[in-house]
Write a protein that binds this DNA or RNA. Structure first.
Lengths: 351, 351
DNA sequence: AATTTATTTGGGAGCGCTCCCAAAAAGTGC
DNA sequence: GCACTTTTTGGGAGCGCTCCCAAATAAATT
């Protein structure tokens, strides 16, 4: 049914080793022999057996992508497919396969043992929101190749790539300040997640750069959901803000609802800037000014960082931060004054 | 660094074979020996090498999930993550890994050779909208385990699972008829895709069941995008329909826009029923009555069908159709008359 | 206790490839 | 044409597991 190297060798009148060399494009094979071998291979449709090759090379050419089960609920529509496409495209270009693992916390241990220690995969990319993801730490400590998508401050040696959440938060907030708003509040994300922490940091930095100090009553923590945004907005109302930077569009939708119920007009009474630029952001009333992130690129860069570890054996941690851009729509009230345009944060790459 | 069976055997004072038996839960090992071996395994953190095992068993315990590159653009937000979750959950339960391949048509050939014929995966699940997907046909003809998510009429032997698109189309259309509408048009999906064809068939069946015949001027074909829906609606307007069954919510959004521009009120002047129940459907004006599909279940069933082939060697084609349900909101005008409720199509399973 | 039967264990062979080393063939220079 | 170098080729060993068969051991039967 299925051919082996040895059989191809016999058919081509050469040895097993020569066929192996041909397949692996090893230079030291006479052109005529190489041609003859390729012909036989094509003729019989020979395909080397992956497991045998993996065993001999101790490489599987498979990269694991780990997504904690809770994530897709939080990161809304474009995020998940876009980052996967970035990863997938980059892996295919480099001849790797993608093993996707959507894991609940209980399944992580088993995955770690079977897939990573059992060498089903050569390395993993973890899409973790949790700042203390145990899988990343463990893989890193055991010397298994791992890249985190999302900052990983817990363990300074871990290689990661992230979007510029601090810069995005700062940019969004400064945009509101520049429009003349002075009572700028924020609905922050959960302070257990790097994006939640970083976007809030950007907010605070912007205020301080304008000589304002971030007051506790202007900061409400949400959980990145619509309901969370709704409730957070209610907690913010007594402080009478004239603008709110909301750390996710989904929360912004909830906030808009709360404002509508409170009889406040957006952007006249209160300006809103969201974050993520989800599909929905174009359809809210009014359409959301928001921060767009290079999600696809995030995936591509993660792959490059991982393969650098795999193929070049780089052990020094790499850190890449990708720039984000402000997408101006109506909810911030800028359109009447400036016309639509986009702003972009600075990109910086460190190691 | 990493242990092998042989080393564990030496440490436990038994043979390689015995350790292998312990690991594979083979019954014929004395309990005390089994205990001793497990202790050593746990102590040193031994994990069998996947490639070696794969080579010996000729199984990889990996299932490939193939998604043609064009698909995620068409199927909107909940579809893609939901079906993957269904697949992933079911695979994990059965001890398999998921290899995800997002492929462009040019990459399909290479994938077929390397992954499938090279036995990187034990079988594949293909999420194909195209009714003539070449990958499915080829895998099937070469006897490699494959399950199609989405009807596959091309090759009668192919095992597939699908949602009840015909039933959904019929249900949506009948709902409009039951509400007293008689000039019921449709914006159909592309007639190259099974869902496009099937939903239109359901529409026609419903009309006929009510003694009406589907007129050409009441049928406009869209491409499942918002823009396509917008243009299709324009083509439909001259026929002065009082209701439209739109074969996807995204197209319905476009249709609503066209109606708004034409000064028609929904549902008063014209009733709309969409399809898919995407996130957005709750936010349109008015909120869309639509058809919800058991997407998650689709993934789970696909896995069961594939593993049945893999583990039981079933060769007869299996066909499963999952029921859908009507979600009633305001765009059909039913709420005033009946109050909200849901209807569900019949489930049927054939072979 | 001796014999038969069932259970448990060990070791060889093999899965299909790569990698290394030595042998063979081809090429160089005088 | 001969000695020497370089290129090309073949075969052994090994990657780490499973599977089968036979040997060893334990249990059952008379």
């Amino acid at each position: 049914m299925s051919y082996t190297l040895e059989e191809i060798a016999r058919l081509a009148g050469v040895s097993r080793s020569t066929v192996s060399r041909v397949i692996n494009h090893h230079p030291s094979v006479r052109p005529e022999v190489r041609e003859r071998v390729w012909r036989i291979i094509r003729e019989v449709g020979y395909q080397p057996h992956a497991a045998a090759r993996n065993l001999a090379t101790r490489r599987s050419q498979i990269v694991g992508v780990v997504i904690p089960e809770t994530l897709p609920k939080v990161f809304s529509d474009p995020y998940f497919p876009a980052v996967l496409r970035g990863i997938s495209d980059a892996l295919i270009e480099r001849g790797y396969h993608l093993m996707l693992s959507l894991l609940s916390p209980q399944q992580e241990e088993d995955f770690y043992q079977r897939a990573l220690r059992g060498r089903v995969v050569d390395g993993i990319i973890v899409l973790s929101a949790r700042i203390t993801d145990p899988l990343i730490r463990r893989a890193y400590q055991e010397g298994l190749p791992v890249v985190s998508i999302g900052r990983y401050p817990q363990e300074p040696g871990v290689t990661y790539v992230d979007v510029d959440n601090v810069g995005g938060g700062r940019m969004a907030t400064e945009h509101l300040l520049r429009l003349g708003r002075r009572r700028v509040a924020t609905i922050a994300g959960p302070q257990t997640m790097a994006p939640g922490i970083d976007r809030l940091e950007g907010y605070c930095a912007a205020l301080q750069a304008w000589g304002l100090s971030p007051l506790p009553e202007w900061i409400a923590e949400g959980d990145f959901t619509e309901a969370g945004g709704y409730m957070a907005m209610h907690r913010l109302l007594p402080a009478r803000p004239d603008a709110v930077f909301v750390a996710s569009d989904l929360m912004a939708v909830g906030a808009l609802k709360a404002l509508r119920e409170a009889g406040l007009r957006v952007p006249d009474d209160i300006a809103i800037v969201g974050y993520d630029d989800v599909e929905l952001a174009r359809f809210t009333d009014p359409p959301l000014t928001t921060v767009r992130q290079p999600i696809y690129e995030l995936g591509r860069v993660a792959v490059h960082l991982l393969l650098r570890q795999l193929e070049e054996g780089t052990r020094e941690p790499q850190r890449v931060i990708l720039p984000v851009e402000l997408v101006i729509r109506s909810s911030c009230g800028a359109l009447r004054e400036f016309g639509a345009h986009e702003l972009s944060s600075e990109s910086f790459i460190g190691s």
